[in-house]
Amino acid sequence: MTTTRWGLALSGWVALAAVTLLPDALVLRAVVTTAFLLVCPGLAASRWARPGRRRFTDRTAVLETGVLALTLSLSAAVLVVEPLFLSGTFTVTRALLVLAAVTSVLALLPRPGGDRHREPQTAPDADPSTAGTGRSEPPDAE
């Protein structure tokens, strides 16, 4: 269990504490809740979206994680608050509570079959991505 995952698991509860204990529009509250709402649920969920093989030096993987962290965080927030608003039961505390719980679960639970999909490590450029597709080669970097 990495520090990042523990951090993600706790992030929602920190945001909930900030909203509960700090006054409106205080910079600290705005920063903590913004950071949580924009990044944490999506970052926790992006673990589950990864194909087996990822490496730190793979910039596409980093790029994809960043994209998913933001878009999934926003999406998670929408999917949590929409039913609450539609049913007339919305409160900030309820919404944050659900998001914090979901984020914790996503961060802490082991990914189903996480290691089963892992493939032998090969050089990225040796990947036969166009093999068998019949497509002529995209232009090389020149």
């Binding site: 529009a25 509250r29 929408v78 608003f85 539609l86 900030v92």
Partner: peptide
């Protein structure tokens, strides 16, 4: 309402 609900939530959460 997705976009508007999201912003309403964000505003109230940040204060």
């Amino acid at each position: 309402p997705g976009f508007f609900d999201l912003n309403a939530f964000f505003l109230q959460a940040t204060g």
